[in-house]
Amino acid sequence: MDRGTVGSASRGRLHVEIRHHGASAVVTVSGELDHHTADLLRESLEGCVDDGYARLVVDCSPLEFMDSTGLNVLLGARLKAEAAGGGVHLAGMQPVVARVFEITGAEAVFTVHDSVDAALAG
Score class of each variant (00 low, 15 high):
residue 12 G to L: 07
residue 50 D to R: 15
residue 89 H to W: 13
residue 42 R to K: 15
residue 37 T to S: 08
residue 91 A to T: 14
residue 105 G to A: 14
residue 116 V to E: 10
residue 92 G to D: 04
residue 23 A to T: 14
residue 117 D to T: 08
residue 97 V to P: 11
residue 104 T to S: 15
residue 56 L to H: 05
residue 13 R to L: 14
residue 30 S to I: 01
residue 76 G to E: 10
residue 101 F to T: 03
residue 90 L to C: 07
residue 7 G to R: 10
residue 61 S to Y: 12
residue 47 G to T: 04
residue 1 M to A: 13
residue 70 G to D: 04
residue 67 D to V: 01
residue 88 V to G: 07
residue 121 A to R: 02
residue 8 S to C: 12
residue 31 G to V: 02
residue 21 H to E: 15
residue 120 L to P: 09
residue 11 R to Y: 13
residue 58 V to G: 08
residue 37 T to G: 07
residue 83 A to I: 04
residue 96 V to C: 06
residue 68 S to V: 06
residue 98 A to Y: 13
residue 91 A to Y: 08
residue 75 L to P: 05
residue 73 V to T: 10
residue 26 V to M: 03
residue 7 G to A: 15
residue 28 T to R: 15
residue 43 E to W: 03
residue 115 S to I: 12
residue 58 V to I: 12
residue 5 T to F: 12
residue 75 L to E: 04
residue 3 R to S: 10
residue 52 G to K: 12
residue 73 V to E: 01
residue 84 A to N: 07
residue 20 H to M: 11
residue 106 A to D: 00
residue 92 G to C: 09
residue 9 A to C: 08
residue 113 H to A: 13
residue 56 L to N: 12
residue 1 M to C: 14
residue 20 H to R: 14
residue 65 F to S: 00
residue 18 I to E: 14
residue 9 A to G: 11
residue 12 G to F: 10
residue 74 L to S: 09
residue 62 P to W: 06
residue 55 R to L: 02
residue 18 I to Y: 02
residue 109 V to E: 12
residue 43 E to M: 06
residue 27 V to P: 12
residue 13 R to N: 14
residue 79 L to P: 01
residue 43 E to I: 08
residue 61 S to C: 10
residue 67 D to R: 10
residue 42 R to I: 01
residue 56 L to Q: 06
residue 105 G to P: 02
residue 40 L to M: 08
residue 47 G to C: 05
residue 99 R to D: 09
residue 29 V to D: 02
residue 121 A to I: 00
residue 24 S to N: 14
residue 70 G to M: 05
residue 90 L to A: 06
residue 25 A to E: 01
residue 65 F to G: 04
residue 89 H to N: 09
residue 7 G to M: 06
residue 70 G to A: 07
residue 54 A to E: 08
residue 107 E to L: 10
residue 4 G to D: 00
residue 31 G to H: 01
residue 109 V to Y: 06
residue 9 A to T: 05
residue 68 S to L: 14
residue 118 A to D: 02
residue 5 T to P: 10
residue 96 V to Y: 01
residue 100 V to W: 08
residue 59 D to A: 04
residue 104 T to V: 02
residue 11 R to F: 06
residue 49 V to H: 09
residue 32 E to A: 15
residue 30 S to W: 03
residue 117 D to Q: 11
residue 19 R to F: 03
residue 121 A to V: 03
residue 26 V to F: 10
residue 74 L to C: 07
residue 39 D to H: 02
residue 10 S to I: 02
residue 47 G to R: 05
residue 59 D to L: 03
